[in-house]
Computed example of a mutant assay.
Amino acid sequence: MLDTQQNLSALNFNVPTVTGEVVSLTANEKTVIYFFAPWCSICHASIENLQALYEKNETINVIAVALDFVDVEEIEAFVAQHQLTFPVAIGNENVKQAYKVPGYPSYYVIDEDNTVISKSIGYSTEIGLYLRSF
Results as ranks from 00 to 15, higher is better:
Q97T: 15
L2D: 04
F35W: 05
A45Y: 13
N61K: 03
R132P: 00
G128C: 11
G122L: 07
Y34R: 03
P102F: 06
L50N: 06
N61V: 05
N7I: 09
F78L: 05
N14K: 15
E76M: 06
S41L: 11
V62Q: 00
V88R: 00
Y108P: 02
F69G: 05
M1I: 06
K96G: 11
P102L: 08
L8H: 03
C43A: 10
I75L: 04
A98H: 07
V23L: 14
P16D: 14
A89R: 06
Q6T: 15
E58H: 10
A27R: 02
C43R: 03
E74L: 03
L131G: 04
V70N: 07
N57Q: 05
V22H: 08
S106V: 13
E29K: 14
N114P: 04
I127F: 04
E29H: 05
S41E: 14
T85A: 04
G20Q: 14
T59N: 13
L25T: 07
S118C: 05
V72S: 09
A52E: 11
A80N: 15
D113T: 07
V15Q: 04
N28P: 01
F134D: 13
D68G: 12
L2W: 01
V101Q: 01
A27I: 08
L131D: 15
S120D: 07
H82R: 11
T26H: 09
V95G: 00
T31P: 02
A45D: 12
E58I: 14
S124K: 12
F13K: 12
Q97Y: 11
